[in-house]
Simulated assay, not measured.
Amino acid sequence: MKFHLAINLERLDASLDMKAVRDHTLEMVQMAEAAGFEIAWAAEHHALEMTIAPNPFQILTWWGEHTKTIRLGVGVANAAYWHPIKLAGEAAMLDLLSDGRLEFGIGSGAYQREFDRMMPGLDQRDSWQYMQESLPVVQKLWAGDYAHEGTYWQFPTATSCPKPVQDEVPIWVAARAPITFDYAVEHGCDIMSWPLTMPFSEAEAYRARLDDAIAKNGGRYDGRWALMRHTAVYDTEEDRSGAMSSLRRVLGQFGNLMMKRGEVVNGFPDPVPLEEMEGNARVDPEMLEENLMFGSPEVVVEKLAKYQKLGVDAFIYYASMGMDMDQQKRSLQLFIDKVMPAFAQKELAHAG
């Protein structure tokens, strides 16, 4: 099983210095590269301090300038927000500047609040249609001259300038719904899934959808399946408590965005009071610790083994989630020192 890192520029309040937040992400990516992580992922979100990511290509280019081997994952571009010519060119420029390290991810977005500002009138539940139109257009633009007359975009003959350095850019699709699994498998795309804070059974449901999609495709699929979880590895009660309280604080803000409850003031979402969400597995501490990649190194090894057995090709270590920057580094270092070696040994044993 491979390991990836997903990290955002994240501020929960205005007390955090923006340059320190910026530099922290690079330090985490460099730690991951030194440890042999395969991909570093950057998201796209708008007008939110908890995920400062207006253009993933910018931060990935910056990370790429300060790294040598780790691949640079767009996780993911929201297709509805991008004209395909611009999306193709931005992605290809990243591939050129990084000497061919682009992993291109595309998806359908998350928050209706964001759509209300970026694409007024578009229901987030319908945005998959933009993704399915955009992706093949981007690939054709990478190949050469192409004119398009589609439902959402129309343009005369154009091409991507520059072209990608890679002969074939890896394509990732963010998938939870069966229709997206079907599309990804049919078109040979890699798949990333995020069960949010739901139990392991949610990951099993995704595996079933992937298997169903492969069966519909005649049993053919050579792609990779990556699964993302919020991760906190700790060896002290202080860090355990800190991780849980930080996570619950962020989930209150996340609840604001998902439930459209409360205000967002200057980019900071008002948290939904947790007592209004009690009884929900998304905020119950014991359920969160069980469902997410939280725990001592030994517990995290056990949890990861379940995902490996499920057929997950890569685990995406989702950092941040409200933890202070020093604790994020301690967690990642514990993962590197005490979790990853267990899987390196398993791979060596398997190869032998």
Rank of each mutant, 00 (worst) to 15 (best):
F104Y: 08
Q166L: 06
I171K: 06
Y183P: 03
D182P: 09
S134G: 11
M192D: 10
A143M: 08
G89V: 03
E90M: 13
E133Q: 09
H148W: 10
T151S: 13
L96N: 15
W142H: 04
T151L: 13
G109E: 03
A92L: 02
G188I: 05
Y130N: 04
F115D: 03
L96D: 13
A158F: 05
S108N: 13
E103T: 04
A147Y: 05
V137N: 04
G105C: 02
E103R: 00
G107M: 05
F181C: 05
S160W: 02
L97K: 06
V137R: 00
Y152H: 11
W153R: 07
R125A: 15
I191C: 00
C161Q: 14
Y146R: 01
G109M: 02
D190M: 07
P170I: 05
G121R: 06
E103D: 12
D123V: 07
C161Y: 14
R125H: 15
A177W: 09
Y146K: 02
W172C: 03
E103Q: 11
I191L: 06
W128S: 13
P162K: 05
Y146S: 05
S108W: 09
P156Q: 04
I171A: 04
E168K: 14
G144F: 00
S98W: 00
A88P: 04
A158L: 08
E133M: 08
W194E: 12
Y146C: 06
P120W: 06
A184K: 00
D116V: 09
Q166F: 02
C189F: 11
G105K: 01
G144P: 04
D190N: 15
A174M: 09
D99A: 12
A158I: 06
Q132W: 11
W194S: 14
L94Q: 02
C189Q: 09
P120D: 07
E168M: 12
L135S: 03
I179V: 15
D167R: 15
E90P: 10
G107W: 00
S160P: 03
W172E: 00
A91V: 01
G89H: 08
G109W: 01
S193T: 12
S98H: 00
M192G: 13
L96G: 12
L87N: 00
A143Y: 07
D182V: 08
R113P: 12
G109T: 05
P136M: 04
D145N: 14
L122N: 09
V185K: 05
E133K: 08
D126G: 11
I106N: 01
S193Y: 02
D167A: 15
H187N: 12
Q132D: 13
W128E: 11
V169T: 06
L196W: 14
P195C: 07
F104L: 09
G150R: 02
L94R: 01
S98G: 03
A177T: 11
Y146V: 01
D99M: 09
H148Y: 11
I179A: 15
W172L: 03
